[in-house]
Design a protein around this nucleic acid. Structure first.
Lengths: 129, 129
DNA sequence: CCTTTGTTCTACTCCTAGTGTAACACATTT
DNA sequence: AAATGTGTTACACTAGGAGTAGAACAAAGG
């Protein structure tokens, strides 16, 4: 699992980390039951603070993508991650909405944006940037 | 142009305003050459600060969706908004990417996410939420 | 001339992000 | 039993974004 952090990015470090872990799960590189490094080890490895890793873990725990077993360790949701509920799907749509609107203003057609999503799915599954 | 601001949202006020103006453009309600309210009038109308409206305007100006004519007023890009460049399309894709990844983790199929985008396009063009 | 326009400046509050250090409680390992 | 490793919590500090507020400036437009 290779993690690349852009320190000069506007997206917070903890979010970058969480998102890359999410891609690892989507790609199948991180499977249910797999354990993640301890907050201290991961922080040392990535050259960042313990609390930043901790924040990323709690972000993922809130989404129920991982389980934080107190005083033991962190593992990918062992029983598998359930399919998106209607609410989760709604929340995703609300987050994508402003981006789709921007695409429309930039005269992108519905098909062009659909293709963009299809390509993203492939890139994520391949692990390419 | 009806603007609704959620003061308790995590997305900044100036961004909510800018995004809703973007949807207005996408919907065709705001056409090239149309003028927008002055920062003071808009702020008073929306019950927010002048600087917040100003920030939203500059956000839109940076994207070249509007033109701020100093000491005169603000208008929608009069010559029409050009089609997305490759760079703009790339930037959009990068912003959508983490959301698509999250969808994949939540076991949404490519087709389900494509449908989500198609529905969003329709909702935006209709002006429905 | 006078109102309106966007712009700029200062000042202040509140919150997030990030780093740093330290300690705690408990599980696992030695 | 002791040592180590785990997530957790607390406190402190810096830096910056977001929002509000008031004031003033320079120029366009009626």
């Amino acid at each position: 699992m290779f993690i690349e952090i852009q320190t000069n990015s506007s997206v917070p470090i903890y979010l970058q980390l969480a998102q890359q872990l999410i891609e690892g799960i989507a790609r199948g590189e991180l499977k249910p039951g797999d354990s993640l490094p301890s907050v201290r080890a991961f922080a040392a490895d990535l050259g960042m603070n313990m609390h930043t890793v901790n924040k990323a873990y709690h972000y993922l725990e809130e989404k129920e993508f991982i389980q934080i077993v107190a005083k033991s360790g962190v593992i990918i949701q062992p029983n598998g991650i359930p399919k998106a509920t209607a609410e989760e799907q709604q929340r995703l749509a609300e987050q994508i909405r402003p981006l789709v609107a921007e695409g429309l203003v930039l005269k992108l057609s519905e098909e062009e944006m659909v293709d963009m999503v299809r390509e993203l799915v492939q890139h994520i599954k391949e692990g390419s940037s």
